[in-house]
């Protein structure tokens, strides 16, 4: 190990944060950029499935809640892009990678939102799963990422609650509403479990990420935590658990559960879900449509600055 590497590992082992200007191994930089930008893209693409319902919310109260939640996601994308930019990559480069398909985002957002119940299910299950992951990431070794996570966790606590509340109202409503809630739970439960990623043994980046403390807990541990916390929540809703194999294991102190359909997971990750193409198309279209606006403000500003210089001279 070079003295630089030694110094870097000393900080990691002593739970000191790595800050932007510090020396870091190239692979660490790449790994953090990969994870953070993927996280940022997920927030931004995640605006779409819920945004799909902003114009159709069944009440005005739900409309302001959903609007502010989707807006938060844009905000969280911004925090994360901003944290990622400290590593010397520009947002434009990251967006290009997203649009070209070289950067990934959480594959959960490639599932369609078909009913109002899905908005509740996303808040409760998808944000719920994300929070389990993000709470753990508040201790990640890269300083700007950790600080971003702390901020995001603080803001996101309302996301999960509003989703659960929306489903609770459905579950206690008319038979059709209850059916809507059950249907949403059935469709989003398994994809939510997949959000934690493949089994640790299958995960390409896990080992190094753990050693460098970019990741603090394994995929399987986090998934188990989520499965455990969700069982009583489903019970309280009075809905049927989508996993018929779910069973308390006294010895482990955890719930045993059925197998995840990994074939589906890889199929969606590799671009073949219901909405993969649609999500990227949407992002590209908005970005392209925005280009004349961005050009206009640049041109306006150039004129203004030119005038200033003229006036000074």
């Amino acid at each position: 190990m070079t003295p630089e590497e030694q110094n870097f590992m000393r900080k990691i082992n002593a739970e000191e944060k790595i800050e932007p200007k510090d020396w870091m191994p190239d692979a660490y930089r790449k790994n953090v950029i990969r994870q953070m930008s993927q996280h940022a893209h997920s927030e931004v693409i995640g605006m779409q499935p819920e945004g799909n319902w902003i114009t159709r919310t069944p009440s005005l109260r739900r409309k302001v809640v959903l609007l502010s939640k989707v807006q938060d996601e844009a905000g969280h994308g911004l925090y994360l892009y901003s944290a990622c930019e400290t590593l010397g990559i520009s947002r434009a480069e990251m967006i290009e990678a997203l649009q070209k398909g070289t950067a990934k985002y959480a594959s959960i957002f490639n599932y369609p939102t078909l009913t109002w119940g899905d908005v509740g299910a996303i808040g409760w299950l998808v944000d719920g799963a994300a929070i389990v992951n993000q709470v753990s990431l508040q201790r990640t070794s890269y300083g700007p990422y950790a600080r971003g996570m702390i901020r995001i966790c603080k803001e996101e606590s309302f996301h999960q609650r509003q989703g659960y509340e929306a489903l609770l109202v459905l579950a206690q409503g008319s038979p059709e509403q209850k059916q809507m809630a059950q249907d949403s739970l059935n469709r989003f439960y398994w994809p939510a479990l997949m959000m934690f990623g493949p089994h640790d043994s299958e995960s390409a980046h896990s080992a190094k990420s753990m050693e460098w403390k970019i990741k603090r807990e394994t995929n399987d541990d986090l998934r188990q935590k989520f499965i455990d916390q969700t069982v009583p929540q489903i019970e309280f809703l009075g809905l049927e658990h989508p996993d018929s194999a779910i069973k308390w294991n006294e010895e482990r102190g955890h719930y045993d559960h059925g197998d995840i359909d990994w074939e589906e997971f890889y199929s969606v990750i590799n671009g073949n879900g219901h909405c993969n193409r649609q999500r990227i198309e949407h992002h590209v279209a908005a970005h392209e449509e925005g280009s004349w606006v961005r050009d206009a403000i640049t041109a306006y500003n150039n004129k203004k600055n030119a005038n200033k210089i003229k006036n000074v001279a």
Partner: peptide, 9 residues
């Protein structure tokens, strides 16, 4: 593809 030219603050 157009990239963003805005400044970082």
């Amino acid at each position: 593809m157009t990239t963003e030219k805005l400044e970082l603050f």
